[in-house]
Design a protein around this nucleic acid. Structure first.
Length: 388
DNA sequence: GTTGAGCGTT
């Protein structure tokens, strides 16, 4: 047995690695010292070029006549992707040609049965270059209600992903297949603490500094909040969680979707009694559905003001008169709880009015034309594209 | 003729 001097390309100190009895070297002996290595090379002193060392089935064979290792310095070879040289080339030439991030197929869930490939294409083409649309069908050719799309540019993918899209009358989720991420409600943000003299145009002008604004909605009568819908939900996301100052007034920004924050997501399965029901708001699940237009009268309509609305609330656990069926523990009459609730005032309003009972959406039928309102969640985002 | 959470005949 003898030792062979081996180093990597980066002028680090050489390491002597033992050969096997038959003077071969197991690749594993190399990778033990040089993780990721895939071979050896050495400089042929006659030609001054590098030579590879024969490698078969993980065994490196002595390269010189007579089956010996000479006293060369052997250099570790790494897979191309690990080589710095290649990485540099990547960043300079390849990356400039290729999109920064690759596109992947996107699954579109919840499609109406009648939607076909051409419809998908027509719907998503405005976002960017589509390279594929596909509807999944059963053996009889009927749609299974979902399909796949793929863009060629990553920007388009980002623009549609994690959003809901109203396709032929149904809200459809677009996600990376198998991703756990729940689609964000929309690119809509909740703007709390606005003053009565702020106008739609003013808000639009302010928020357009962050990105294109599709819509601004201010409820009437005045309820101290607004919704701003951006064209790009990434813009909306960036704004979440940070107050803004508009004309000297500090306004509160939150997602228009109570499901939107991580905190709320992790608590979703919790019962309100265990968690913090008013934090979760009435905005999703059965709470949202439970907030019927009838219940909305406590907040909506001309009688609206905070004090009377709260005092007008039915006592807790009064069944159908409460905030939906999950808010039993929320005692609105308790000053301490009320104070806590006021701290989450915007969240609460958010949940209640964002497409919920207070809004009174234009479509008489419920969520996605379903008559079955037991379907949770989406009620907060029923078709409401025309907020004004 | 119905349906509505899911994950693609490779």
């Amino acid at each position: 047995m003898l030792y062979v001097r081996i180093a990597d390309e980066h002028d680090n100190e050489a390491i002597e690695i033992p050969t096997e009895e038959n003077l071969t070297i197991h690749l594993s002996s190399i990778t033990a010292q040089f993780p990721g290595a895939c071979g050896l090379k050495y400089r042929n002193l006659d030609t001054q070029t590098m030579r590879g060392v024969k490698l078969v089935d993980g065994i490196l064979y002595p390269p010189h006549d007579g089956g010996v290792w000479k006293d060369n310095l052997y250099i570790v070879v790494y897979p191309k992707d690990n080589k710095r040289k290649m990485e540099d080339e990547d960043s300079q030439s390849i990356r400039s040609k290729r999109p920064a991030q690759k596109c992947s197929d996107l699954i579109v869930l919840g499609l109406p049965w009648k939607v076909e490939e051409k419809d998908l294409e027509a719907f998503f083409a405005p976002f960017g270059d589509l390279v594929m649309t596909m509807i999944k069908r059963d053996s009889t050719g009927k749609s299974k209600g979902y399909g796949f799309i793929r863009f060629s540019n990553h920007e388009a993918q980002e623009a549609v992903i994690g959003k809901r899209h109203l396709i032929e009358g149904r809200w459809c989720d677009v996600k990376i297949p198998h991703s756990k991420e729940q689609p964000k409600a929309s690119s809509k943000i909740f703007v709390g603490r606005i003053t009565e003299r702020m106008t739609k145009d003013e808000l639009r002008a302010y928020f357009e500094q962050f990105g294109a604004v599709d819509d601004v909605y201010i409820p009437t009568p005045f309820r101290a909040f607004a919704f701003v819908t951006f064209h790009d939900n990434a813009v909306a996301e960036k704004l979440i969680g940070e107050d803004q100052v508009i004309n000297g007034v500090s306004v509160y920004i939150n997602t228009a979707d109570p499901k939107g924050t991580k905190d709320q997501q992790t608590n979703r399965q919790q019962s309100p009694q265990e968690g913090m029901p008013y934090q979760h708001g009435a905005g999703y699940g059965n709470r949202s559905s439970g907030f019927s237009p009838d219940q909305g009268r406590y907040f909506g309509g001309n009688n609206y003001n905070r004090e009377s609305s709260f005092s007008g609330m039915p006592p807790q656990n009064s069944g159908s008169g409460n905030f939906g069926n999950n808010s039993g523990g929320f005692n609105m009459m308790n000053p301490a709880v009320l104070a806590a609730a006021l701290g989450s005032w915007n969240n609460m309003l958010n949940g209640m009015f964002n497409g919920g009972g207070g809004g009174g959406g234009g479509r008489g039928s419920g969520w996605q034309n379903n008559t079955d309102m037991k379907k949770d969640g989406p009620n907060w985002n029923k078709p409401d594209g025309k907020w004004s």
